[in-house]
Computed example of a mutant assay.
Amino acid sequence: MSKPSHVVNIDQVEAVDYREGEGWGGSYQPLTPALDALPGRLGANLTRLPPGRAGCPFHSHAREDEIFYVLSGRVVLRLGDSLQEIGPGDCISCPAGTGVAHQIANPFDQDLVYLGIGVNDPHEVCVYPDSGKVLVRHLKQVGRLESAPYYDGEPARPGIFDLLERQQALPRK
C-alpha cells in the first residue's frame, strides 16, 4: 500500500469536476493529498470557476476557516449582506463560527482561478441561509431542521430501563 505523495505538480493532478446544472460549480485540483487523507487537516485546492457560475450556495461554517487567493480572473464575493468585486492578488478570509455566510460567483467573461485553503473537519456543520438547509458532515446529511421539544418522540418510559431489565433477566454464567 503506497502512501500519498508529499509533493505534487499541478500538471499531474487530475481535475475533479463538480458542476451542477447551468449555474453551479466548476472544477478543482487537490494539491495536498498527503493531508487530504487525514480528516481535519489543512488542505488546498486549485479551483477553476467558469463564467456564469457560483462555486457553491451561500453558506457559513461552524468549524472550518476558509481562505481564497485569487490567481486570475475576477470574482464577486458575497459576504454577509455585502457584494464586492475581487481580483488577482486578493486574498479572502472567511472565519468559522461567526455566522457570516459567504459565496463566490463569476459573472464575468473569463475563468476565475483561485487557491482554496481550509480544513476538512469531519465534524463540520454548515448553514445555508438562502435555502434553510444545514449540513452535518459527521452524519453525511444535508437537510432542513424543524424545531421540536427536547423530549419529543421519546418513549414515556426511557428505553434504558427495558434494556436493564432484559440484561438482569438473563441467566448469569
Rank of each mutant, 00 (worst) to 15 (best):
N120Q: 08
N120P: 00
G55L: 05
W24I: 15
R41C: 05
G40A: 01
Y114N: 07
P57A: 06
T98S: 06
P33W: 02
P30S: 09
T47P: 00
H59E: 03
A15W: 14
R19S: 10
P51T: 05
R63L: 07
V125L: 04
L79G: 08
S60M: 02
H102P: 01
H102S: 02
V8R: 10
G118M: 04
D109Y: 07
G89D: 09
S27M: 13
N45L: 07
D65S: 03
Q29E: 12
G43V: 01
N9P: 03
E20K: 14
L83G: 10
H123S: 05
G116A: 15
L112W: 04
H6E: 14
C126K: 12
L112T: 11
G116Q: 12
R19E: 13
A37S: 14
I67F: 10
W24F: 15
R63I: 01
L42T: 13
L115Y: 13
A105Q: 14
L42M: 14
A54T: 12
A54Q: 14
V7Y: 14
F108M: 10
S27G: 11
S82G: 09
H61P: 01
F58Q: 03
A54F: 13
G99K: 06
Y28I: 04
D81L: 00
S82M: 10
G43T: 11
G89K: 04
P33G: 07
D36H: 03
G87D: 09
P122E: 04
A15F: 09
P33H: 04
C56G: 10
V16L: 11
D121V: 02
I92V: 12
G80K: 06
T98K: 06
Q29R: 15
I92A: 03
I86W: 13
E22F: 10
A62F: 05
P4R: 06
V113S: 02
C56R: 08
Y28F: 15
R41F: 00
Y28M: 09
T32K: 09
N9E: 15
D90G: 03
F108N: 12
L49D: 03
N9K: 14
A44M: 14
S82D: 15
V7D: 12
F108A: 07
D121R: 01
E64Q: 10
H6D: 11
H6Q: 13
Q12V: 00
S27W: 15
C56A: 11
L71I: 06
W24Q: 15
D11W: 11
P122W: 05
S93H: 11
H6M: 07
S5K: 14
E66H: 01
R53F: 02
